[in-house]
Simulated scan of single mutants.
Amino acid sequence: MQDYYDGLLDITHGCTGVTVSYSKLHDHWKGSLVGHSDSNASEDKKITVSYAYNHWSNINSRTPSFRFGTGHIWNNVFDNNNDGINTRVEAELLVENNVWSSGTTKPLYSTTNGYAVARGNDFSPTGTNTAPQGHFSQAPYQYNLIGTSSVRSSVTGSAGVTNFC
């Protein structure tokens, strides 16, 4: 069967106020792209996206990848992914209290002038943050962070399809 889509969850063309939460994104070549193209600044600079309490597993790249706009990524679990969060083309990210398993050597990185403020993350023993320091350091809404020691059990127990009955 051939796939007729690019990533599992792509957010493009000036979307604002998008939140992806309690989802399980897994088993694909590309996870989530934010921003249409490198030449779409006029439309995509206004993008605002939040990712919270998601489980990213067995994905090659884009966990997620941001072009332009701002993103807040907190309390997510990343397992067995080749690539990490990519901030690029003037994107500004706030990345807080996320947890990576061993194997992802670049859990947070930049290509072509992306930036990030990273706090409280567990990049695993093999991973490092190589993204340049950004300026987006406070989300425009209230939220509660789970300590990194509790993120894995909280997220893997509630992300994706679960039985609430």
Rank of each mutant, 00 (worst) to 15 (best):
C15S: 12
V89Y: 14
H135T: 13
S158D: 10
W56G: 02
C165W: 02
I73S: 03
D38K: 06
N98A: 05
R88D: 12
V161Y: 07
R119A: 08
N54G: 14
N97C: 09
V161L: 11
G69Q: 06
C165H: 11
L94T: 06
G31F: 04
T148N: 01
H26D: 10
S37A: 09
G84R: 01
T126D: 13
S57T: 12
L9K: 00
G160Q: 07
G120S: 03
Q138C: 05
A116C: 07
Q133C: 00
G127C: 03
G14F: 11
R152K: 11
T148E: 01
A139C: 11
T87Q: 04
F164P: 11
T104Q: 05
H72P: 03
T148C: 00
N76Q: 08
T162I: 15
F68N: 04
W29S: 11
H55I: 01
T70Q: 12
S137D: 12
Q142G: 10
S154G: 04
K30D: 13
Y51P: 08
N80S: 14
D79E: 15
G157N: 08
M1A: 08
K24V: 04
W29E: 12
A131C: 09
I59Q: 02
S150A: 12
A41K: 15
V161D: 06
T128D: 07
L93S: 10
V161R: 14
D79Q: 15
D44S: 07
G31C: 10
G14I: 11
A52K: 12
A41Q: 13
L145C: 01
W100M: 04
L93Q: 02
G127P: 01
E90G: 01
Y4K: 09
A116R: 00
E43Y: 09
Y141G: 06
T87G: 08
D79Y: 13
G160S: 10
K106F: 00
C15T: 10
Q133T: 15
R62A: 08
S101P: 00
E43C: 08
I11R: 06
L145K: 03
A52G: 01
L9N: 09
S102I: 11
N81R: 00
D3C: 03
S42Y: 04
E96D: 08
N121V: 05
F164D: 12
N40S: 14
H28G: 13
A41D: 15
V18Q: 04
S124L: 03
A118L: 06
F78C: 05
T48D: 03
N81T: 14
G127V: 04
N58P: 06
R119E: 08
S101Q: 09
V49K: 02
D122K: 00
F68D: 04
D6A: 11
T19D: 01
L8N: 14
Q133S: 14
N163H: 10
F78R: 02
E96L: 15
V95P: 02
S153R: 13
S101V: 10
H72T: 15
N60W: 12
P107G: 12
V18D: 04
G84V: 02
T130K: 13
D27F: 12
S102K: 03
S102M: 11
N163K: 09
I59H: 05
V34A: 06
T128S: 09
L145M: 02
V20G: 05
